[in-house]
Amino acid sequence: MRAAVIQFPGSNCDRDMAVAIRDITGAETTLVWHRAGELPDGLDLIAIPGGFSYGDYLRSGAMAARSPVMQAVVKAAERGVPVLGVCNGFQILTEAGLLPGALMRNAGISFVCRTVGLTVENNQSAFTKGYSTGEQVQIPVAHHDGNYFADSETLDRLEGEGRIAFRYAENVNGSARNIAGVLNAGGNVLGMMPHPERMTEAVHGGSDGRRLFEGLLRQIA
């Protein structure tokens, strides 16, 4: 298995993501700088990590979504390569048009940084195979702009097509229908605000995030 983690100026979860992927899946994991015009060959997974790319200038993820490497990421996603965007990565994927909707300032204005309960809504995707549908898991969030917005038509479509991967078990940030993670139409792109890479071993206080990577490994290997 081969994986790439994209680094933007201001990414700060890139190394955590690379360690999680490498340790759990054994994938040969490369860090790819945002100015790269192309990605390594034969990738089985692309991860867009959390952080504050470009200092969240203009809008969270807006500048990163227009950087050179993202064109290659969009092409890979169209070929069916699994793309995982976490936190700022989710914001970047919506800004790049790979996922519908937008992530706005948290409804309560405050930065939210704590472990939250998530309900697994769909365990059929490559990313959620390690979970059971309806199961509740504990994964930390750390974000200021996690308030998921889409018009009601889009939300109905996402629900109807089983594209809501995770929902918050409580109102965390004002997200429409408590959405915490969404899939693209092909099911190979997942954006989620919570950080599975920060919950992968006992010393983190839990390992519910680990199963996302284990599920990916089973799917890909």
Partner: peptide, 9 residues
Amino acid sequence: TKLLANMVI
């Protein structure tokens, strides 16, 4: 439309 505004919101 390409950068300065996010047309979703």
